[in-house]
Design a protein around this nucleic acid. Structure first.
Lengths: 106, 106
DNA sequence: TGATAATATCGGATATTCCCGATATACGAG
DNA sequence: CTCGTATATCGGGAATATCCGATATTATCA
């Protein structure tokens, strides 16, 4: 018997995706070397640092930092701290899972 | 060349999915005959009427009506008016499209 | 036509989200 | 340790969402 558990996490993911800027950030992170050519202090394997994302978003540092936290809590991105920088990159597995959830659970 | 158009509709879809009750309604509509055994005035091909959904949701009629409008504007459900009833059912094509959008666009 | 039932829309109190400036924390250089 | 830089967190004003009760609209039936 299949018991439907209304996944709390699902709601969190959709809320995270319910903001224009956060959707844009996820887009930019698909192609870091194109979207963030200015980043020089690290390769793109670790991700993109908050400052670069902030400049591109045109919002304040605090807002962008919070948005990245929201995306991270939803599992859509992961962060790596290297020195004074925090690099964020997409968690592609989460998007694959979300895609499947929409096909079968939603 | 592929030009990314930040789809206004995408945002609307995610906002529509950012509510516990609306997610539940979509779940219920997956299996109308199980979720709404009380509906007798119509077959389930046309969908489920607002009153049945309202009873199950436990919210007021106005709220449920509005939620169904939100889901409809997002393209996730479609409605059919038959006499005094409006029947809502899932638009499965929208979910398939959303699943693909997440795989390729988001 | 008038009464009743189903649904939609309106106006508003409350909760949540958005986004900011100020401040705190973490780190590296000197 | 102290200064400067990067990021995180806090407090709050404005905008939006949630959900309600009241009312309007649409359809049925006598």
């Amino acid at each position: 018997m299949y018991i439907c558990v209304m996944n709390i996490k699902q709601l969190e993911v959709f809320k995270a995706l319910s903001n224009k800027t956060r959707l844009e950030i996820l887009q930019w992170l698909k192609d870091p070397e194109v979207s963030f050519p200015a980043q020089v202090h690290a390769g793109f394997e670790v991700g993109v640092c908050v400052g670069e994302i902030q400049k591109k978003a045109g919002l304040t540092q605090s807002t962008v930092s919070e948005y990245l936290s929201i995306l991270q809590r939803a599992g859509l991105v992961e962060s790596t701290r290297v020195g004074q920088w925090t690099y964020y990159k997409r968690n592609e597995a989460a998007f694959e899972e979300l895609s499947k959830i929409i096909q079968s659970d939603i």
